[in-house]
Amino acid sequence: MSERSPFRIALAALAWVSMAFLVFPVILTAVVSLNDSFFIEFPPKALSFRWYENLAAIHRIGEATAISFAIAVAAAGLATVLALGAALAIARHPFPAKPGITAFLLSPVTLPMVAIGIALVQFFIAIDAAFTWWSLAIGHVVLVIAYPVRTLVASLTLSDTSLEDAARSLGASRWTAFRTVTLPQLKPGLVSGFLFAFLISFDNYPISVFLVRGDLTTMPIEVFNYISNNFDPTPAAFSTVYILVISVVIAAAEYRYRIMSLSIPRS
């Protein structure tokens, strides 16, 4: 099939239309964020940065962002550490009911988030620990655990066990061999697992909304509330900043650790 066959041309055209659909809202939001108008309006009338200056108007945005950041780091960190052990067991050791246990560890992504939120809030109320920072963090570990488990199993499956054997035959202890040979190979898996866990946690609304109350709040909750109660383009400015930061982070992680090829499921 040559490059210029009608099939390939039609395919490229369809793909570009779909890509446009994917990118369109983001670009529009960025354009609207620079519009001086008090309402969402397109095409824009006059250029202005006032909505960027107005970001502080989102209720407790600084504090909420700090909490979200801390929760995301804690949840992603704990999830990655817990997942490393489980992934090693899944990828390298025999145990009974492996498919079932693996499916169980990956299941939180397919369960409705609201169900997890409802289940957790009742559980934490029952043990008298609801609406605390750490109960929120634990909820987020459940939320994100599947991501590091999946990427670490994938990168362990790709990594070469004979290298660890070679290190051992050269006199390294089991732990030294793991630390000096296997762990460096796992870096992309660790980075992308942590990164996606962090981003999923940082952005979560449906679980957090059940687990926060009073002083405890998160960035998505405050942004959501602002969008529900205001119609000015401040959230457009917020969105643009968010997308720009994410783009830099993802591009950097891809450039440094090649996270993308690891996250493409090869089923």
């Binding site: 369109f24 809202p25 983001v26 939001t29 996606f196 952005d203 998505p220 969105s239 968010y242 997308i243």
Partner: peptide, 10 residues
């Protein structure tokens, strides 16, 4: 990787 809220807002 980008926020669901951000994308919905779009």
């Amino acid at each position: 990787a980008s926020s669901l809220i951000v994308r919905n807002y779009g």
